[in-house]
Design a protein around this nucleic acid. Structure first.
Lengths: 249, 249
DNA sequence: CGATCAATTGAGAATAATCAATTGGCGTGG
DNA sequence: CCACGCCAATTGATTATTCTCAATTGATCG
């Protein structure tokens, strides 16, 4: 690596670190503001617990405080698909506002705490305290932007790049929540990851093997659920370049 | 078709018709409420005009009054993808709230009228008139639900089924806006449809040819831009069944 | 009438799915 | 403690689907 590149990389890393710090602060501030202004019902959930289910009447929004959960969309014809993976500071349940019923299942992936907020109380608090309303709108906006990025990843990326992008996203999410991001423990099976990414479990397994062979990731345990990511930006580069056709062996 | 089936179909059609009527009323009421409570800047757009562009500062939300437009997401690495197709009564620009800048381009597909609403004025009006706030939240929620359905269609459906689902969706959108839905004029090229559905233009063309061969659709003009849909529910059935593996010749 | 652009269609290549066999962890009960 | 069964993951062989490349047709417009 030459001097120019390493300087550019160092500057880039610095910007990344600032970004991350801001993001952590944003989440902390958000949780504090909500706790201060809205009655919160704290609920401990364990892996597999449903936070809400498709068809349930919409009365509450939820805010993940610790742990993580998945959101699964179910179609009338029986197709089911994971459409979101959420961490500390992420909101759940916006899909229920429009029709008065939830349209997805939200299921905890590990032990954590979820805050339940009565929607009517939240709206009342928003009316009294405009910054809270701005926050709520921004969070809905964030979900919309994130879903669109996910949509784009599905249509434009190869199987390997999709898996790499998934790992990159998880690493980034953990990082911006103050957790170590060089090693991630997947609380999802290959089948679940595949469902999320529109791939079969075998394709996910093969993609992970290829990424490991290319040294972009490494496995930290025997069961291959712990994934080391020595260099997140290398993974990001791969996602960009593989889109343009550079494939792994 | 036997009696049982035709009775069931008739009842189903009746429910569909009620649903459609409610939906039309909802859109009419929404436009009236917004026009009454918020200063609206009406803007006539023509095919190809940008309503907003990625990177533009977020100051307004937009509401499509007539015509239709597409929303295109652009990634940092140059990938671009259409992520939405909008009609009368659809809102645009929610993606800009979170970061203060738009993250997509919105481009008119035909001549139409778009209402521009200052976001701060809208928020102020919402504070004064709670039903308007409920409406705004419901619209954001609707976008989230719709995006997730699109995500699911991409990962679970074959090329033929994706194209069929796209046509079904457009027909339904036109129907719920009081326009004829037995014949639709696509204002998008095969390449644009393909981009939206994660397919190449050739795959879209082949899928349309196969759907036509199966009599699920027909072409009404020489250029094959006008598509007849004799029976929307047959198309919906195909989407459901093809997901389970029944393919066309 | 020719130029241009969109659409179609075919042949072959590439990617991911499917089917099938095997390995490896992990927990349970002998 | 070890054997067993179970589940997740991997890997290989084959098939199917979609993409890519290429040629052709058709419509539209100056």
């Amino acid at each position: 690596m030459n001097t120019v590149t390493s300087t550019a990389t160092a500057r880039h890393d610095l910007i990344e670190a600032q970004e991350t710090r801001r993001e952590r602060q944003r989440i902390t501030d958000m949780l504090a503001l909500v706790a201060e202004r809205v009655p919160v019902q704290r609920r401990v959930v364990h892996a597999g617990d449903a936070i809400y289910r498709s068809g349930d009447a919409f009365t509450h929004l939820y805010l993940q405080n610790t742990g993580c959960c998945k959101v699964v969309n179910s179609a009338a014809d029986g197709r089911a698909q994971m459409v979101g993976l959420l961490f500390r500071g992420d909101w759940l349940g916006f899909d229920g506002i429009a029709g008065g019923r939830f349209r997805c299942d939200a299921v905890a992936l590990d032990t954590g705490e979820v805050w339940a907020l009565r929607y009517d109380a939240l709206v009342a608090a928003c009316a009294e305290h405009p910054p809270l309303m701005a926050l709520l709108h921004a969070e809905m906006s964030r979900v919309i932007g994130r879903d669109r990025d996910a949509l784009m990843a599905l249509t434009t990326l190869s199987a390997d790049a999709r898996v790499a992008e998934f790992l990159r996203l998880v690493a980034h999410a953990l990082d911006s929540r103050g957790l170590r991001n060089d090693q991630i423990t997947l609380r999802m099976t290959r089948a679940e990851i595949g469902n999320y990414l529109g791939l079969t479990l075998e394709s996910v397994s093969r993609a992970l093997s290829r990424l490991a062979r290319a040294q972009l990731i490494g496995f930290a345990d025997g069961a291959r659920r712990e994934i080391r990511i020595p260099d997140v930006s290398a993974l990001a580069d791969f996602v960009g370049h593989d889109g343009a056709g550079v494939a792994l062996q």
